[in-house]
Simulated assay, not measured.
Amino acid sequence: MTKSDALGNAKQGDVLAVPESFMVLVSRTCDLVRRPALAVADAVHLPDDPEAEIGRKPHLAPVPAFRDGDWYADLSTLRHAQRDEVCALVEHLEPGLETGTHASAFRRHVGRYTSKPSWDDYIETTVEPLTTLAKKRHNKNSEEGALYRALSDIRLELETPDDPGPRDHHSPRGLEIHYIVRPEHAAGLDPDAPATLMPADVAWLINQPSLSDIAKRWAEERDELRRVVWLEAYCAELTRRCVDRKVFPVTEVTHNVVAEDQFTFQQVKRSAPIEVEHLSYPEAPEPLVGVRLQDSEAPERPPMGPADPSGFANPR
């Protein structure tokens, strides 16, 4: 393998051996083939740190398949570098995430860490149907509870203003809701070939069925493409309820249903997850291109609130 293709088969969470240290690839796998720049973080070895092991240090994202399993990506060192510069440093590549469960947990951990506090009241009012659902359905043994858990995350993104000038939080803006689908439920979710509704489906949905009725159809459906129809209908109905509650300066609420492995790191940076106890406000995205590895510094973060004992080791 030449230096130029040292990352040819790389995936998110892989560990790069570089002179005298290790780095973890934080960029999403889909971004590794699309972008000329990568997000990386230092790898740290903490064999005797029970707080890191149970997730009480949110800047440490586990890479459990690397070496003895006691390694973490230190997200406080997160930085962006040109792909060619990283390739020039890499001595070899080792997997850090072995299973789909590892990969999903790592993606959600990074997404939660890069989000910032806190949403304004008008956002909380608009998305109250989502937070209410999270409280009611997260652990419910029902069709709707199962459909809700088919989503690995629900993230919010405020529109980015076209002009680069100052803009306060109460300027009119749109809100996009990203419904992120777990891999095992995303087989029929194809952005290039969206599922189509049959006339009978359209007639049924026009009557605005309840979320539980939509979830029942999803649970009874055995065809993967048809299941996607009901998953998307469920998300559309949730969004409609947010539209009904929107308050100024939210002028529009739209949504996006996307497979977990197709939601890019740039989208993670621009958005923030729904939280049951508190909501988070996203930081303005940092440019990925043009940051030299040796000049990069860990981004400053505002003070975090009290540690959540259930925290990042076991994300929703």
Rank of each mutant, 00 (worst) to 15 (best):
D190M: 06
Q262W: 03
W218V: 08
Q262L: 15
A236M: 11
F248I: 07
H185F: 15
F248Q: 15
R226D: 15
D223Y: 09
F248A: 15
V268Q: 15
V228A: 06
P191D: 03
E260F: 01
A203W: 10
E176I: 13
V258N: 02
E221G: 03
T264I: 03
Q208D: 14
V181E: 02
H255A: 12
D192K: 14
F263S: 00
E221Y: 12
Q267W: 07
L211E: 09
S271Q: 04
H185M: 04
H255G: 08
T264L: 02
A186E: 12
L197I: 05
T239M: 05
R240G: 01
P199T: 06
R227F: 13
E221A: 15
V247N: 14
T196W: 01
P209Q: 06
Q267A: 11
Y234Q: 11
P273N: 11
E260I: 03
Q262D: 10
S210C: 04
F265W: 06
P249Y: 13
A200V: 10
R222A: 12
L238T: 04
E252H: 15
L189N: 01
A195R: 08
E221R: 14
T239Q: 05
Q208T: 13
F263Q: 00
E252P: 07
A219W: 13
R182Y: 15
D190S: 04
D261C: 00
L231S: 04
V229S: 05
Y234R: 02
V202F: 07
R226L: 12
Q266D: 08
Q262N: 08
R173L: 10
I177S: 01
R217N: 08
R222E: 14
A195T: 02
R241Q: 08
R241N: 00
V268M: 14
D190W: 05
L175Y: 06
W204F: 05
D213S: 13
S212R: 13
I206L: 15
R245F: 04
I274E: 02
V229Q: 03
I274F: 08
P183S: 14
V268N: 02
Y179A: 09
E220S: 12
E221S: 14
I214D: 00
R240Q: 07
G174I: 01
L205Y: 07
E260Y: 03
T264C: 00
E176P: 01
E260D: 04
A186T: 03
A233R: 06
D201C: 03
R240A: 09
L231K: 09
E232L: 10
E275H: 12
R270Y: 07
S212A: 15
K269T: 06
W230S: 04
E277H: 07
C242G: 00
E184T: 10
A272F: 05
V202H: 09
V202C: 03
L189Y: 03
V253W: 09
R182D: 13
